[in-house]
Write a protein that binds this DNA or RNA. Structure first.
Lengths: 239, 239
DNA sequence: GGTCAATTCAAACGTATGTTTGAATCGAAG
DNA sequence: CTTCGATTCAAACATACGTTTGAATTGACC
């Protein structure tokens, strides 16, 4: 038996999205968003409980239903919020600045992306939440919107940089594979952190190590892109 | 109030591990392992339920406790089983054959690793389960053993190939970063599958596409490794 | 056939969790 | 001060889920 309240809350969320984040003074809601971001990033959607989020936000468990309508709707809201905040903390303006050489732009892109994954301050949670959602999308359907509105433009930005570095003569699919080869090197530092911490803990142990890693990824990628034409595809393999 | 049964089951599991997989005719247990592998790979540890696993295996829910002691112990067993089976399906013998050139060996390594991630037949679940565990380790502690006994040797194998291709003059940490740059390109095809399917679905849509992707990763990596010495590290960045 | 250990079974148990409910409280406006 | 909508609250609800329990069944051995 659903009361009328969730419908009202859902409508409120819809108007929030449509108005592109109208400023609101609503301390409870803000506290919930912040607490949820921390706990969802840490534990994922399934393991995070409404009770734990509300305890951290110091509000009553019914508040999630009142302000957001459901745990899922809260998660969707948090995901969008996370992406917007990560973009502020790690902006892509230099990567998008076409007056800079493509090598420099690529370095900025990689530094930003890796920073989001590995920043252990409170803002690193945004990147972590996104990486987690990519690896195991929640049934909320929130990922589709985030990909369309924000991640896709970043993929296109990277495709442009890659195209300048590698030169002409590659299919569209291969151009995409090139971009993914760059991005994959960064994302694995989140997705395979458990392996890295056990096998090679020294390489991202400190902020300096992280910077060295970003520089290494940039160097590896630039070397690959500039010299790809020298490596011929291998002959087709049987079976 | 714990009965004596779990202790007995745990001791049985320990002797299984110690004896290096003594052959056993135990249809219920086998059916549970197989069903659990499928469902754990698909849904992860938390979302998979004992009831669903038992339904698929067509056994009673108490069987998990009887044969394995707990859901966690079942998962640990499945993880080890998954890794052993994946190694049979995608062996690393050619990648480890030092009579072959390092380029060829790297191609085999990458083809194996990517195949595990993207094989949609029943055997692909092994790689998927491992990738999932890497991204979000379960509280079972099972990952430590799998990493020590099997994944670490594969990392070392790759480190050897990389060393031959890149030549001397790099620190140990940088050698590790190089290996990870290769592995990361493969792993992202699992971990970021949700993004790829939405943004660039065409690049791993068919088995032929997957092969092209493996070839691309090999080519990118070989180009990078062979020409890394031509790319100087960028100057230190402020802030 | 009887005995005994192993195995299976359905029901029960104890705990967890998202959601709902109706009352109480709060804050703004008249 | 009263009214009214918004918000918060604690308790309850309905469902889910890993685990336990004691009885029933099975299979091997004598």
């Amino acid at each position: 038996m659903k009361s009328e309240r969730p419908t009202e809350s859902v409508a409120r969320i819809a108007s929030m999205n449509a108005s592109n984040d109208t400023p609101r003074h609503d301390p409870t809601r803000k506290r919930l968003l912040q607490a949820a971001l921390e706990i969802f990033a840490d534990k994922g959607f399934r393991d995070a409980t409404v009770r734990e989020i509300c305890a951290r936000a110091e509000v009553d468990v019914a508040s999630v239903n009142y302000h957001f309508g459901s745990k899922e709707a809260l998660y969707s809201e948090v995901l969008g919020f996370a992406y917007r905040e990560a973009s502020e903390r790690y902006p892509y303006t230099k990567a998008g600045d076409k007056s800079l050489p493509p090598e420099v732009r690529l370095r900025h892109f990689i530094g930003n992306l890796l920073g989001r994954m590995l920043d252990d301050t409170y803002l690193g949670r945004h990147g972590k939440l996104l990486a987690r959602e990519l690896a195991d999308p929640t049934p909320t359907g929130a990922l589709d919107q985030v990909i369309e509105t924000t991640m896709k433009p970043h993929c296109e930005l990277l495709d442009g940089i890659v195209a300048e570095l590698v030169g002409p003569g590659y299919s569209e699919a291969d151009m995409h594979r090139l971009g993914l080869s760059v991005v994959g090197q960064c994302l694995m530092y989140y997705h395979s952190r458990s392996l890295i911490d056990r096998v090679y803990p020294e390489i991202i142990a400190t902020p300096e190590d992280i910077e060295r890693t970003a520089e290494h990824i940039a160097r590896f990628s630039i070397a690959a892109l500039k010299h790809l034409h020298l490596e011929k595809p291998a002959p087709h393999r049987a079976g």
